[in-house]
Design a protein around this nucleic acid. Structure first.
Lengths: 334, 334
DNA sequence: CTAGGTTTCGAAAACGTTTTCGAAAATCGC
DNA sequence: GCGATTTTCGAAAACGTTTTCGAAACCTAG
């Protein structure tokens, strides 16, 4: 194993600059010498030192993906699948992905500032944003290219699931099946998810010629317990709804057993449309009608947006907020 | 915002070296000037550039945690909890954690070699190891400190769940409840998990005065479908077992409904002990008797082992393989 | 054979940091 | 007040890489 380009050059009896240019594909190098250099580098296992490279040309060739402990949504691999896609695309452009986990005992903004000002990454992917997240302003003033996964805004690039269409499609699907009283479960906070979901829900009702009843819009924590609680809430309504649309992947896991405890059968006595297809919901019986998408593709899109901002991708002018479509998986629950 | 230590020095009308020493706590700096430098650095948001630092003193002050998409037997929440603990401890020593996801279209060894020879990290944490994983030899010859999560061997540092005790405790628990025919479900491959689990199982049987019946040792893929298949296998046995011990967290999710489809009730017609407590298994009814541990603590231990190897932690001589204990959560299933 | 053009390579600077070592300033003993 | 000692600071080198620019060597045409 060889230490630096200096040793490699000495070993080849060439100058440092010649070796560097051969490795980086510059055009003022004889094809024969280039081949000789490449072979030697491969044989001796030489790879350019990252710090030296970064220092020289001011770019780390590295994209950061910040995650926080709080948002471990459930037991399945949401992020792992996204990482896969990001890394796949970045690698084609000789960039690398580093995931940066912020521990819960450090403020997110402080952590991000440290990472960015230390110059550890050229660009950032953010997830788990809070309503008015200070991290966005920080990256903007620092001039670091970035994209967010979810919580889109007009002022920065983002990828967000198309909750509006999901809710809208759900309503139409249920209305076609004859349902007139369709409830919806939303998170209590004012995240984009809730706003978009509600908009699609109401548009669907209007388009289907159904009336909008505020009593049918429930605020539920996005947990299994939230799903259990939802059951009581639904059954207590005067004119009991015959269908419910869920906006998170955990609710169904609580709703199913809670219904059965009341002697009701999911999908039969209450139609259910869930969100999102995952390892946890996939084995519910009767199978859950829900929405699905390739998270690896989402990761690929995130990477492409970053590449477009850093100039690695010359083509298409990206729209700022990428609404990500999801497809409905018809199950037995509604 | 300020660019480099050069600007900061000029702004303070001090030399570069004085500023550097003040920031790094060297002892040949006047307390007053140090305070002045620290204040200015904080005010102007200066943080030492990572590449320059790494280049100068040959250390990146960064620990890598390699994960692979392929064998996603553990999901987001598993890793996120481990990351939390690692980052907590590393941060106290002014180190940082970077998670390095290897995409499925690149050989793991090649990816690791690239990361390491590029000098992106000072040490590595490895997970998801295969039986004779070439990554270990590579790190050893490269002289990079590392620790593995699982798949312990005598030749390198590792943290591994104490599967032997888990299986042993399970057998004793079931034997005490009167069970004589206790089955066990193991993965098909020859990972440590299977070896250790089987050893603990057989030791438990012997200690409880029960005979060892090879028919009761089943090889099942560690998936929900594996759990479903296990049901048929169990029921087809001539002298049907009254209890089963599972060695992965997904099996129970398949076994429960499969049993019910046969008209049998989990925990009543078949005692079940699961491994491991997780968000997915936590809402099974009747509740699953299973084993649990703090994954954040596991992360902390991993970090400590790394710190001991890199000399950041002067104290205790670590044993090579840290067997990690788990505690049994008594549920209604057995 | 020579002038001009093309191809191929090397010397040197720069990126930002830390540390060694020496110099200057301050303090002390007498 | 002066030499000796301690305290405080600055100049410069080094880490490994890439790129600019100039020099050398080669080739072509006349």
């Amino acid at each position: 194993m060889i230490k630096g380009i200096r040793e490699l050059a000495k070993h080849l009896d060439l100058s440092i600059s010649t070796v560097s240019k051969a490795l980086n594909g510059r055009f003022d190098i004889n094809a024969e010498t280039r081949a000789r250099v490449l072979k030697a580098a491969a044989d001796l296992g030489y790879v350019a030192n990252q710090s030296g490279r970064a220092l020289r040309d001011g770019a780390t060739h590295t994209v950061g993906f910040m995650i926080t402990q709080g948002l471990a949504i459930n037991g399945d691999s949401f992020f792992l699948e996204v990482f896969e896609g990001v890394q796949q695309v970045l690698r084609q452009h000789r960039l690398d992905l580093v995931v940066l986990p912020c521990s819960s005992d450090e403020p997110e903004a402080e952590y991000l500032a440290r990472i960015v000002t230390r110059g550890m990454v050229d660009a950032m992917i953010l997830s788990g944003l809070k309503p008015r997240d200070s991290r966005i302003a920080h990256l903007q003033t620092a001039g670091i290219p970035f994209v967010t996964l979810g919580q889109s805004g007009l002022e920065h690039a983002s990828v967000e699931f198309d909750f509006e269409s999901v809710a809208n499609t759900s309503v139409h699907h249920l209305a076609r099946a004859g349902h007139r009283r369709i409830a919806v479960s939303l998170p209590a906070d004012n995240l984009n998810l809730g706003r978009l979901f509600l908009a699609g829900y109401e548009r669907g009702l209007t388009e289907a010629g159904l009336s909008i009843d505020p009593d049918l819009v429930m605020r539920t924590p996005p947990t299994v317990e939230g799903g259990s609680g939802l059951c009581g809430h639904l059954l207590s309504l005067p004119d009991r709804p015959t269908a419910v649309i869920l906006s998170n992947e955990m609710s169904a896991l609580g709703l199913y057993p809670a219904l059965r405890a009341q002697g009701l059968e999911p999908g039969k006595d209450l139609a259910i449309i869930g969100f999102r297809d995952s390892a946890a919901t996939r084995h519910l019986r009767p199978s859950l009608t829900c929405f699905s998408t390739s998270l690896t593709d989402v990761g690929r899109e995130l990477a492409r947006i970053i590449l477009a901002q850093t100039g690695h991708l010359e083509d298409e002018a990206q729209e700022l907020c990428r609404l990500w479509p999801m497809t409905m998986l018809r199950g037995e629950s509604g």
